[in-house]
Design a protein around this nucleic acid. Structure first.
Length: 547
RNA sequence: GCGCCUCUAGCUCAAUUGGCAGAGCAACGGACUCUUAAUCCGCAGGUUCUGGGUUCGAGUCCCAGGGGGCGCACCA
């Protein structure tokens, strides 16, 4: 993994066995594609009655959490008329009364209707679960004590032709949950909150960095040759240039070029792509944060890592003490710092040192049942031993210091330990969360390191780092001393959300495509007429600017 | 890629040793003026993932394929 800043950040290895969250995958692809709960169309309201916009709705939480409303006594009215909008998730009709639970993304409130005060009472009682409705009425508390909007009039905003699964148990079919995340978000408790947490973590990250004077930038996803990491890229074709391109595997090299260009503090939060395995802990596209700070070294990056992670935990979870997989995790700064060898010795009792040479290291690897490849140098052997025996056992958080130069082509030589570079990985819950170094700025040294990579590449190592001449030329213009940090955003969100499966923190994780497309759906509306059959005007009316 | 597990109504799940495919929810029709997973009455709903095989008889056993899950490998 060498210099690979995100070698596994955001993609875990050696992780604790993930809790099995769902059972019994169903689903032949046909049924998965046919979606959940297809129901016959109906409901007695014509599509043309649905308005183009809906004015005046307030967030439901502003009603449901209003102190005056909370203090309201059963049977009393607040004397305040509100309009709310959202989705009908429960519906209970009782003779000339009707109760519905209306939910928007801020909260839920009951609608209370009756034949005397509600326009089109009958229509309301025939809403399908899942229909979107706007409603206006007084804020009251029912005799039975439920805060409600006593509906005088209401508007259908969307029909739900498909249901959202069992109203009590939701939808547990993993395939449906992931392929139809929109269903998962409504049907299952906590899903939406988890993704809101993710969103807040990312915006929090931006805010914390902005406060320290960093600027956010965007670098290319499409690259002639991806570099800056160790991974197989996805390949694509750039028609206009008649050239094969790759999707980026790291943002590192472009960001360092910005340091050369005078951006002293930059960061990018972006998707990178690695053409590798799929697992509960690996998604081929994942999000990284990369930060570069001029005049700083890796010790500054340790402080920054601690600051980001502990601040987000405090802000989003209310504490730096979290529970992850049932085990306590204390994220408050400062985090422990220990060298790679110290940690291996603690875990295995085996002393290691680069100085003892490859042969001796290989013997110790064998004694620990760690396989070693013939081509591996001493640094690689050392790293393998650490990764196989120690990293998965580290609960942390801990900054693992000082990696062999051999496996770190982009990091600067250690100022006092020959053969090592100034690099650390932050390990939390047995997995790498962050990877950082004092950046290598010397163009000649960098060229030499990348030539070694290029040779490995030429020898068939598909994941050896590509030699990037534009990057090397940039370094020749001079890059100041710089500390750089890469952090796996998906991984961080997993920690904050207490999730063992990366797909629970990615809205639309990669899945095998369904063969044959939509197999048809008996509950769905008839197919739309083909475009050719539409009147000329209609054929173009497919969106803003579409014409 | 390999191994193990799994797939039954729209959803969540049953179905004794191989012996009539069921329930709850959703849907549909109805009753009900304070419900809270409302309740009650009625009605409807199936290529038991697909294709073969064994058997008098297969949701159940066997083979092949597909989807999904987990683990391993990969992720220098």
């Amino acid at each position: 993994m060498q210099d690979d800043r995100h070698g596994r950040a955001g993609r875990d290895r050696g992780a604790a066995r993930p809790a099995r969250r769902a059972h019994g995958a169903v689903a032949d692809p046909a049924r998965a594609a046919a979606a959940v709960g297809a129901q016959p169309a109906g409901g007695g309201v014509s599509e043309s009655a649905i308005p183009y916009r809906f004015d005046g709705a307030v967030p439901i939480s502003s009603v449901a959490e209003d102190p005056a409303a909370l203090a309201l006594e059963a049977g009393a009215s607040l004397g305040r008329v509100v309009t709310v909008a959202g989705r009908v998730l429960r519906l209970r009709t009782q003779g000339k009364l009707c109760f519905a639970e209306l939910r928007d993304w801020t909260g839920a409130i009951q609608l209370f209707a009756d034949t005397a005060t509600t326009a089109d009472f009958e229509g309301l009682t025939h809403r399908a679960l899942g229909d979107w409705v706007g409603a206006t009425g007084e804020v009251v508390r029912t005799r039975r004590g439920e805060l409600s909007v006593r509906v005088t009039h209401w508007t259908l905003l969307a029909r739900a032709r498909r249901g959202f699964g069992d109203k009590w148990r939701g939808v547990h079919d993993v395939d449906v949950r992931l392929r139809q995340r929109e269903v998962d978000l409504w049907a299952n408790e906590g899903v939406r909150d988890r993704f809101l947490l993710r969103s807040r973590a990312v915006s929090g990250m931006r805010r914390l960095l902005d406060l320290r004077g960093f600027v956010e930038v965007e670098t290319p996803v499409l690259q002639a040759q991806a570099s800056g990491g160790h991974a197989k890229p996805f390949r694509t074709h750039f028609n206009a240039l008649h050239a094969d391109f790759t999707l980026r595997i790291a943002t590192e090299l472009h960001l360092k070029r910005l340091l050369v260009g005078g951006f002293e503090r930059v960061y990018e939060i972006g998707r990178i792509f690695r053409n590798e395995g799929l697992s509960p802990r690996h998604n081929p596209e994942f999000t990284t944060l990369e930060v570069y700070q001029a005049y700083a070294d890796y010790t500054d990056m340790m402080e920054l890592t601690e600051h980001l992670v502990s601040s987000l935990a405090q802000e989003l979870r209310g504490s730096t003490t979290l529970s992850y997989g049932g085990r306590a995790l204390e994220l408050a700064a400062p985090w422990r710092r220990a060298t790679l060898e110290e940690l291996v010795a603690e875990e295995t009792g085996v002393e290691l040192s680069l100085a003892m040479g490859r042969a001796e290291l290989a013997r110790r690897a064998a004694a620990l049942d760690v396989p070693v490849a013939d081509g591996d140098g001493p640094g690689k052997v050392l790293l393998e031993i650490y990764e196989k025996t120690t990293e998965p056992q580290l609960w942390g958080p801990v900054h693992v210091l000082d990696y062999p130069k051999e496996v770190s082509p982009l990091a600067r030589d250690h100022r006092s330990r020959p053969g090592y570079v100034e690099r650390f990985e932050s390990v939390v819950a047995g997995r790498e969360l962050a990877n950082a170094f004092s950046e290598l700025a010397d163009p000649d040294e960098q060229r030499g390191r990348l030539e070694v990579q290029a040779a490995a590449r030429a020898a068939g190592d598909e994941e050896a780092m590509a030699l990037d001449e534009e990057f090397l030329r940039a370094l020749e213009h001079g890059m100041p001393p710089t500390g750089g940090l890469g952090l796996g955003v998906d991984r961080l969100v997993m920690l904050l959300a207490d999730e063992a499966n990366i797909r629970e923190v990615i809205l639309f994780p990669a899945l095998r495509p369904l063969a044959g497309g939509d197999p048809g759906d008996p509950g769905a509306e008839p197919d739309e007429p083909a475009a050719a059959d539409l009147p000329a005007g209609a054929a173009q009316a497919d969106g803003p600017g579409g014409g």
